[in-house]
Amino acid sequence: MYTVTGEVEQARKAALEVLQHNRRGPCAGLPRTAGWGYPEPYTRDMIFTFFGIAVSGDEQLIASMRRVLEVLARNQTERGHIPSLAHDPENLGASDTTPLFLVGISIYRQLSGEENFLQEAAEKALTWLYYQSPGDRLLVAQLPTSDWRDEQWVLGYGLYVNTLVYAGLRMFDRHQRADAFLQEMRHFTITSNIMHRHVHEGLTVKNKPYYACWSYKIYSSERFDLLGNSLAILTGIASRSRAERMIAWIEEECSVMRERGDLASELPPNFFPFVKPGDPDWRRRDEEFNMPGDYHNGGIWPFICGVYIAALVATGKYQLAERKLHALALAVKPSRAQHLDYGFNEWLRAQDALPKGQNWQSWSAALYLYALRCVEERRTPFFEDMRKRSSREQ
Score class of each variant (00 low, 15 high):
residue 180 A to V: 12
residue 198 H to M: 11
residue 155 L to N: 14
residue 140 V to L: 04
residue 148 W to H: 11
residue 207 N to H: 14
residue 209 P to A: 09
residue 231 L to H: 03
residue 207 N to T: 09
residue 127 T to L: 14
residue 122 A to H: 04
residue 238 A to W: 01
residue 119 Q to V: 11
residue 150 D to T: 13
residue 249 W to L: 06
residue 113 G to E: 10
residue 174 R to P: 04
residue 235 T to Y: 13
residue 193 N to G: 14
residue 173 D to H: 15
residue 189 T to F: 04
residue 155 L to F: 14
residue 121 A to R: 05
residue 156 G to H: 03
residue 214 W to N: 01
residue 243 A to W: 00
residue 200 H to F: 10
residue 164 L to R: 01
residue 106 S to D: 13
residue 198 H to A: 12
residue 164 L to M: 09
residue 130 Y to N: 14
residue 189 T to S: 04
residue 230 S to N: 04
residue 166 Y to L: 14
residue 152 Q to P: 01
residue 130 Y to W: 14
residue 229 N to R: 01
residue 157 Y to E: 13
residue 165 V to K: 00
residue 123 E to K: 13
residue 136 D to P: 01
residue 106 S to G: 10
residue 132 Q to K: 11
residue 132 Q to L: 07
residue 150 D to H: 06
residue 193 N to A: 10
residue 209 P to E: 09
residue 179 D to R: 15
residue 228 G to I: 03
residue 248 A to Y: 11
residue 119 Q to T: 13
residue 195 M to R: 14
residue 164 L to N: 00
residue 230 S to P: 00
residue 137 R to D: 13
residue 193 N to W: 03
residue 229 N to G: 10
residue 210 Y to R: 05
residue 186 R to C: 05
residue 170 R to K: 13
residue 154 V to A: 04
residue 210 Y to Q: 06
residue 157 Y to Q: 13
residue 192 S to H: 07
residue 216 Y to M: 08
residue 215 S to V: 00
residue 155 L to H: 12
residue 193 N to R: 10
residue 108 Y to K: 02
residue 185 M to K: 05
residue 109 R to W: 10
residue 106 S to Q: 07
residue 163 T to A: 10
residue 140 V to H: 00
residue 194 I to A: 06
residue 219 Y to G: 08
residue 141 A to M: 01
residue 120 E to P: 08
residue 188 F to C: 03
residue 172 F to T: 00
residue 145 T to K: 05
residue 129 L to Q: 06
residue 105 I to H: 03
residue 118 L to F: 07
residue 216 Y to H: 09
residue 206 K to C: 04
residue 235 T to I: 06
residue 137 R to N: 11
residue 213 C to K: 08
residue 208 K to R: 15
residue 241 S to W: 11
residue 126 L to W: 06
residue 139 L to V: 09
residue 109 R to T: 03
residue 194 I to Q: 09
residue 170 R to C: 12
residue 220 S to F: 09
residue 124 K to I: 08
residue 247 I to E: 01
residue 120 E to Q: 14
residue 217 K to H: 08
residue 231 L to W: 07
residue 136 D to N: 15
residue 158 G to W: 06
residue 165 V to H: 01
residue 218 I to W: 02
residue 221 S to H: 06
residue 169 L to C: 08
residue 111 L to Y: 02
residue 114 E to F: 09
residue 108 Y to M: 02
residue 131 Y to D: 12
residue 236 G to L: 08
residue 187 H to N: 15
residue 114 E to T: 05
residue 242 R to A: 12
residue 145 T to A: 15
residue 177 R to H: 10
residue 110 Q to K: 15
residue 154 V to I: 15
residue 185 M to D: 03
residue 140 V to A: 05
residue 133 S to Y: 02
residue 149 R to T: 07
residue 147 D to N: 12
residue 148 W to P: 00
residue 178 A to V: 07
residue 156 G to D: 01
residue 241 S to T: 13
residue 129 L to M: 14
residue 118 L to E: 02
residue 236 G to N: 07
residue 247 I to T: 02
residue 149 R to C: 07
